[in-house]
Amino acid sequence: MRISERVDNAVRAMASLASSDGSSVKAEVIATTHDISLKYLLDILRDLKRAELIRSKRGPDGGFTLSRPASDITLADVFRAIDGPLADVHDKSLRDLSYAAPAEALPQVWMAIRGSLRRVLETVSVADLVSGELPSYVVELAAEYERDTRSRHG
């Protein structure tokens, strides 16, 4: 699975909005803070707005705010707003996917991948990210990844 630059930037922008205590944040501030091209960020913000995750306000006091509490917005919401389904197998429903032997078990692998992604992305909220208080199993998975990476790469 590849996490796109757009998703990474969108999540960081959402974290900036969540940490603003409900005040509007100008796109220029987010772009500067996260070293993102303003034009590129505005495209991302448009996708987030279309998905009803953020609101915009025009004028001198304008900017962007979250459309609902950060605790009600998961990373999966942001991911889907930017890149679509979490784990897509050539635009087919996993329920309808079947393969001939010897690959007949492959749909179960794809389902497990999607389930693993959901387990993390649908349970971590933007508020969790901003507070740094991630669910314990997410912290454990990250630690396991770090251990495995260290053991492979020294």
Rank of each mutant, 00 (worst) to 15 (best):
R152H: 11
I82C: 01
L53H: 06
L134I: 02
V25R: 08
K57Y: 01
D88F: 06
T123C: 03
Y145H: 12
S151E: 07
D61Q: 10
S125Q: 04
R46V: 15
D8W: 15
I113D: 00
L38Y: 15
I73K: 04
T74L: 03
D128T: 00
F79C: 04
F64S: 02
G22D: 06
V89T: 06
R150C: 13
A112C: 06
S93F: 07
E52R: 07
L106S: 14
R114Q: 05
R6P: 06
L66D: 06
L106R: 13
A27W: 03
V139R: 07
F79V: 05
L94M: 00
I113Q: 03
P135T: 13
R147V: 12
P102C: 11
D43V: 15
V7N: 05
T33V: 15
R118M: 01
V7Y: 00
V138P: 04
S67L: 03
R119W: 02
V89P: 02
A76S: 12
K57F: 04
S125P: 02
A70P: 00
E52T: 05
E133P: 01
A101R: 09
G132H: 12
I73M: 08
L141N: 02
Y40S: 13
G115K: 08
G132D: 09
D128I: 01
S151Q: 11
V11R: 07
L17A: 01
A76I: 02
R80S: 02
S98G: 09
P60C: 13
E104A: 13
I3M: 03
K57M: 14
R95P: 02
S37D: 15
A18D: 08
A70R: 05
L75Y: 03
A105R: 02
I36C: 11
L97M: 15
S23Q: 12
E5M: 15
G84A: 10
D77W: 11
R114L: 13
V138G: 02
S56Y: 10
S98N: 09
R80G: 01
L117A: 09
S93A: 06
I44Q: 04
A87H: 10
L134E: 08
E52Y: 09
V120R: 10
P107C: 03
V124I: 10
Q108H: 14
E28H: 08
R6C: 08
V89H: 00
G154N: 12
H153D: 00
D88T: 10
A142C: 08
E104F: 14
V138A: 11
L106V: 14
A70E: 07
V120K: 03
A15E: 09
A76P: 01
R95W: 04
Y145Q: 09
V126D: 00
D47L: 13
E133Y: 05
P60D: 10
T65D: 05
L45W: 05
L117S: 03
E133I: 12
K92G: 03
R119E: 10
T65H: 12
S116L: 15
